[in-house]
Nucleic acid binder design. Structure first.
Lengths: 229, 229
DNA sequence: ACACAAATGAGAGCACTGCTCTTGCCATGG
DNA sequence: CCATGGCAAGAGCAGTGCTCTCATTTGTGT
């Protein structure tokens, strides 16, 4: 790991980081669409073509920012979860959801980058998957733990969904009852519906007092999976 | 109304429509980000500056497309609702949700335009509001009707949300019990979470058999508001 | 019927974008 | 100590949204 890199390699990693930092700054200020390679280069006192030594294209820069955003969101969620690790599952569930919302409100453009409409023509490379999965895995962990403690009463599983549910649990959530799979995945998606609507202005003049509204909705989401409170 | 417009006015409305048509075509093909005024003008055999006689800016063209998209989605939902107008509310609820999903899958870029991340810097003008409200009003109607038939058992309303819920019902859903307001608005947002996740690829390798999964989630959503089936 | 005004289209041009290619420098590894 | 390869710089291409000017067409009031 910590191989003493030559001055050259060190400079490279430093400049790469500086580019990402400046890009993130512009992303936060103006949004992904207005992120301009030339502007980043200008802010860093280099010429635009030099930037291509570090990121072969604008999309690659965006991909790096996407991974960072997923990781930042995942870290925020994990941190919030650890702070309430001793509480009952329903409380931990809410804490994670609230952390996701909090991160989204604090980083709207980065949230839009990862959970808004994908930049057209852009396909997320496989590299983003592990970072993207962190919040999902955290929620799975809460539900599995609830199951192990006997604090989970999942709703009945429609026969139609049995095979799918068993595949899902086998793939991503071994040890979790298949009855919880579909409600959990749905709740996961619905969580982002709630956050996205608030963030993108759909609640304007509809929901005013948003935090309690969100907590109520999220608690219902937990109950729909079978988390008891 | 039907004032016999002069050749000039007629030409204007025709050309305006032609511009929107071509723009919609490019939107469907490539997405909003790649919608280019110059390309639209080129396809129509006019020069780019001429297009500005009809739409003062690219944003105005997009706004027109957004309103059309909201209307198209609203019409699809209303049509689906009318086809099952005699069924019980739970069935009508599901029908509307399924229609929303169907429209989204058929018009992914238009869906992304209205429910994805807003084009940065772009603020939806007030003109879009009535078109945007159609689906919401339809869902409100289903729930209110369920209430009037005695087929609605909304969950208890947390005291914290009482005032907000009463304001919401007074503003948008007179005649609906306030207990249903928060769950309904949440379900509305969550519906778009489900659709968005499917559309934007988050269910890739997670949910395979998506229609039954969606129906199950949507039925749970209806039950969370208190619709009995 | 005619003149004036408004609407429209064409073209050039500005400032910007992502990206490529060539050129020359200079630090590093053999 | 020298050759190589990483690097920055600059010019340039094709495209973008948008503005401005100029000529032409069209509609209308006298």
């Amino acid at each position: 790991m910590n191989t003493p890199q030559g001055a050259r390699a060190r400079a490279r990693t430093e400049i790469t980081a500086a580019i990402k930092d400046e890009a993130r700054r512009q992303l936060a200020a103006e949004g992904a669409a207005k992120l301009s390679l030339r502007a980043v280069a200008r802010a860093l006192g280099m010429v635009s073509s030099a930037l291509y030594r570090y990121f072969p294209s604008r999309d690659d820069l965006l991909t790096a920012l996407i991974i960072d955003a997923y990781d930042s969101l995942g870290a925020a969620a994990e941190e919030a979860h650890e702070a309430v690790a001793d509480e009952i599952p329903a409380v931990r569930w809410t804490a994670v959801c609230v952390a996701v919302r909090g991160w989204a409100l604090a980083h709207p453009h980065e949230y839009a980058l990862i959970y808004g409409s994908p930049v057209p023509g852009y396909v997320a490379p496989q590299t983003t998957v592990p970072a993207a999965a962190r919040v999902g895995l955290l929620l799975i962990g809460v539900v599995r733990d609830a199951h192990e403690r006997g604090a989970l009463t999942p709703p009945p599983l429609p026969g139609e969904l049995r095979a799918e549910a068993e595949r899902m649990t086998a793939d991503f959530a071994p040890g979790m009852p298949p009855e919880a799979a579909a409600p959990l995945v749905a709740a996961w998606a619905q969580l982002y519906g709630l956050v996205g609507f608030e963030l993108f202005g759909q609640f304007h003049r509809v929901v005013e007092d948003r935090e309690p509204f969100f907590r109520d909705a999220v608690a219902r989401l937990g109950r729909s999976i079978g988390l008891r409170d």
